[in-house]
């Protein structure tokens, strides 16, 4: 699969999901597919009028249709219940790993990245409906922790 097309400036808000999709393209195509679908769906609500955005959205749609055919035997791509379970499991594993590192005072860029990515993947789960109370709390905590540890590292402080 080719690289994800560059998104126009008006769609900057979806860049994070596309980056996670690109990083998972070969590692976990299910995560990559749903991050792109979530990005596309969000983009439709942000800018579908500018020429740049329209061209980008059509390319993304083409790409997702090709992916869906390519992975027609993968239930976590063709079936939304299986997809939700796969993504929830993946995001939770990442979140629990980051939390365990945090509690063991192992602070590093990889812990920031894991908290951040899990927070973004909890966002992607909204594609399948409203999040449970627990997932909502995890999402809030993951995003806050990622920002907090990131700032501490940047300022040379030790996270508490």
């Amino acid at each position: 699969m080719t690289d994800i097309p560059t998104c126009p400036p008006t769609l900057k808000a979806i860049q994070h999901y596309l980056k996670i999709a690109q990083e998972h393209a070969s590692r976990d195509p299910v995560v990559a597919y749903w991050c792109q679908l979530h990005a596309l769906q969000s983009a439709l609500g942000i800018d579908r009028k500018s020429d740049e955005s329209k061209a980008f959205l059509v390319k993304m749609m083409d790409r997702l249709e090709v992916m869906k055919k390519e992975f027609k035997d993968n239930e976590a791509i063709t079936n939304e219940v299986a997809a939700q379970a796969h993504l929830e499991n993946y995001a939770l594993k990442l979140f629990i790993w980051a939390d365990s590192q945090d509690r063991a005072s192992n602070f590093g860029k990889n812990v920031v990245k894991a908290f951040y990515t899990s927070g973004m993947l909890f966002d992607v789960l909204t594609t399948f409906g409203e999040l449970s109370e627990e997932i909502q709390q995890n999402r809030k905590y993951a995003k806050w922790k990622a920002a907090y540890i990131h700032n501490c590292l940047k300022n040379g402080e030790t996270p508490v």
Partner: peptide
């Protein structure tokens, strides 16, 4: 009439993208 034409065109394109996304999720 130019603006009406443009607005109709935009709305048709929007519908097409929405329909494609909906079909993609139902496939």
């Amino acid at each position: 009439t130019g603006s009406i034409g443009t607005s109709t065109q935009v709305s048709q394109e929007q519908d097409e993208l929405t329909q494609r996304l909906s079909r993609l999720r139902q496939m």
